[in-house]
Amino acid sequence: MDLTETLLPGVGVRYELTTRSGRRLGIIVQRQGAAELAVYDRNDPDKASLVFHLAPEEVEAVADILGATRMTQQFADLSREVPGLRSGRLAIRPGSIYEGRLLGDTKARTLTGCSIVAVVRDRDVVTSPGPDEVLRGGDVLVVIGSSHGLEQLEDMLTDPRAPSPPS
């Protein structure tokens, strides 16, 4: 992949990427957090013919969307490389007994040997969540562990019985 970085003095940085399909994409990251996405003209490759201006909060949203899928994909790649290691996405269903409880209450690591490496919540991703992370309905846990451990954890999360109360 051909990604070039160009300094735009006084403005920010421009990243230029030629996609596999041959189109060029420009990403201009401005200093105050705004960004522009540009697609270049076919007749005049020096000219950005289609420009999207993104306000700082929109930049954040786009980055989160792309970042979240990217992360799960990386985990998938990781588990493919290490035999015996699996990754999975386990949802906390709305109304689940874990809704509103702490991540530490699942005792996932102690009981199943699985690590919860991220919590995907709407557009946000909480990476390396601590045991104090409050779970919400609709959260998706990104989990790494053995295939047996993953099955156990999935059973636990869908088990209607309440978990042991926090000590």
Binding site: L8, P9, V11, R14, E36, D46, K47, V51
Partner: peptide, 20 residues
């Protein structure tokens, strides 16, 4: 350059460098 959507253009770094 910003108003005309030319920040992404290939000639823009040259323009900004001259200004600096």
């Amino acid at each position: 350059l910003s108003d005309l959507g030319r920040l992404g253009n290939r000639e823009t770094p040259a323009v900004l460098s001259v200004l600096v």
